[in-house]
Structures are given as C-alpha cells and as structure tokens.
C-alpha cells in the first residue's frame, strides 16, 4: 500500500521536474527567437561593428544556439541567472533582495484568504439553494470576471481616499508596531484576497456538496443526526482531500494577482521587478523571474495533486 503511494508520489515529482524543464526550454526559445540582437540593442544604432562584435563575444552570443541553451540551462540549475542587461548586477542578487517581500505578501494573503474561503464555501454548501448560497455564488462569478486593478483602485478610493484609514501606496520603510504593519499590508492583502477567495470558495463548496449528496450522508440524516454533526463529523473528513486540492490550486492564482497588486501599490516584490524588467527588455532578469514564478506555480499544482492522491484511496489505483 505504502509502496504504491510512494511510487505515485515519485511519478508526480518526476512529471513536475520534466514540466519545469519543458517550461525552461519554452522560455529560452521565446526569448532567443527574435532575430534582433541584444548586443546591438544595448549599444544603440551608433555603435561600431567592432564594439558590437566584442559585446556579442562577451555575452556569449557568438556561440551556436544549442550550446547557449545547454549553458543557460546548467547555470539556471546551479542558481546562476546571469547578469542584468540594464545595470550589470547579478540577477540572483536582484531577486534575492525582493523575494522575501513577495513571500510575506503571499503568506499574509494566504493566512487571511484560506479561512475566509473555507467559511464561505462550507456555509454555502450547507445552506445549498438558499438566498445566501446564491449571493455567494453570484459574488464569486463577479469576482472572477473583474480585473484585479478595478478591485485595487476601488479599495484605494474607499479606504484611502474617502475614509483615510490607510495610505494609498505601500512603503516598506519603517514599520513601527502592529498598526503600521496593518496599514501597509491592508490594501494589497485585501485585493489579493478578493481575487483568490472566489475560486477557493467555489471549489470548496463544490467538494462539500459532492460529499453531502452521497448516500451515507442520507443514512446519517435518516438516523437522526443533527445538521452540525453531519457536516463536521460525517462530511468534512471526506471532503478534506478535495478542499486541500482547491486551496493549493487557488493559491496558484496568487501569482497572477501579485503582478498587478505589486505594481499598483508600488510594492517592492519580485513581480514588480519582473514587470520593470519586461519594460526595459532585460531578458536575463525576465527569464529568471519567469522560471521562479513557473516553478512556484508547478509546486502548488503538484501539491494539489499529491493532496488529492493522499486523501482519495480511489486515485491510488489509476
């Protein structure tokens, strides 16, 4: 039994690593497809051919593509992402200085969003068909069809401009005490929470509704068990797998939201770093950030997969 699980988990892990390799290849191909020359672009139109040739050699652009690909891949594996084309500092250092900020933002959002989504999803499933359920359902459809920057700017308008509770921009300078922390993170976290709670609550509700409609719940009901006992004691244990799956999957939506939120609130995280990198076409920086985001995404999706396997014995036999 345990051996089967071990083998299944190993397959998932290998699949994730292979996918990451595929993603790396796609990223490399896309960023090297353009005939335009990075060296030419860096030096401008007035550069002498000798200077361009020299820089090409320095950047390794004179090597054949497959050799550059292998070298790039090997450097990525070692964690050496090269140097920024814009200011020449190592990409790894640039990312290192920002990564913590992004992780804090994502972590706080997860702490707020996961309990909220669970409560919304579970109560909606328990009161299925009620007005409350329909309001939650309509709310989640609205939330996923609205751009993140609408949520963010509406939040700024209400809480920063009208009520003046918080500053409009995040400044990660001095954080004196709890109040300052709350003020800094309130709006970014609020926006991100709004974005991912909808998805999570929908999936949680669906998972629990599924379990609640099975015949053993019917049996418990006929036995005369109370509603609370049925939900907590009978239904939830069997829904934990799908719910964990929903949580991990929805957290992967954080990545998309973070890009907008860090930009709109001027928050010094890696998403902001990457967006700046794209606008200056700093390809090594963009490649490294893309790999980081795709890696995080794959990690979450794989965790969702593994949670589903561990929780559902039927999946072990596929």
């Amino acid at each position: 039994m345990n051996a089967t699980i071990g083998r299944l988990l190993l397959t998932r892990l290998v699949a994730a690593i292979l996918t990451l390799w595929f993603v790396a290849t796609v990223v490399f191909v896309i960023t090297n497809l353009l005939p335009g020359d990075v060296a030419q672009e860096l030096l401008g139109q007035s550069a002498t051919p000798e200077a361009v040739a020299g820089l090409r050699k320095a950047l390794g652009l004179d090597l054949p593509p497959w050799q550059r690909y292998l070298e790039w891949l090997w450097n990525m594996v070692r964690g050496d992402a090269g140097r920024s084309l814009v200011n020449g500092s190592p990409v790894a250092a640039l990312i290192g200085s920002r990564l913590g900020n992004s992780l804090i933002l994502a972590g706080i959002t997860a702490l707020v969003a996961v309990p909220l989504a669970l409560v919304l999803g579970i109560t909606a499933a328990v009161y299925r068909g009620s007005v409350y359920d329909r309001i939650v359902g309509a709310g989640t459809v609205l939330a996923v069809s609205v751009p993140e920057f609408l949520v963010a700017s509406a939040a700024v308008l209400v809480f920063a401009v009208q009520l003046r509770w918080v500053p409009a921009l995040s400044q990660l300078g001095r954080l004196d005490g709890v109040l300052d922390v709350i003020r800094t993170f309130a709006l970014p976290v609020l926006t991100l929470t709004f974005v991912i709670v909808a998805q999570m609550a929908r999936m949680t509700r669906a998972a629990l509704v599924d379990v609640l409609s099975s015949s053993y719940i019917e049996m418990a009901r006929l036995k005369g068990a109370g509603q609370a006992r049925i939900v907590v004691w009978h239904a939830l244990p069997n829904a934990i797998g799908p719910i964990a799956n929903a949580i991990a999957f929805s957290l992967s939506f954080l990545l998309g939201g973070v890009i907008i939120v860090e930009t709109i609130f001027n928050y010094p995280g890696i998403a902001k770093l990457m967006v700046d990198g794209v606008s200056t076409r700093d390809l090594p920086l963009v490649q490294a950030c893309a790999m980081l985001f795709c890696g995080a995404y794959l990690l979450l999706v794989t965790m969702a997969d593994i949670a589903a396997i561990l929780a559902n014995p039927r999946l072990r036999h596929r």
Partner: peptide
Amino acid sequence: SIPSKMFGLVLVAA
C-alpha cells in the same frame, strides 16, 4: 503549466 500572465510577460519582453 505556464501561468497566463507570466506567459504574456515573457512574450512581450521578447
């Protein structure tokens, strides 16, 4: 398995 916004950023960068 490439998140859509990330894909968009990489394509626009290139």
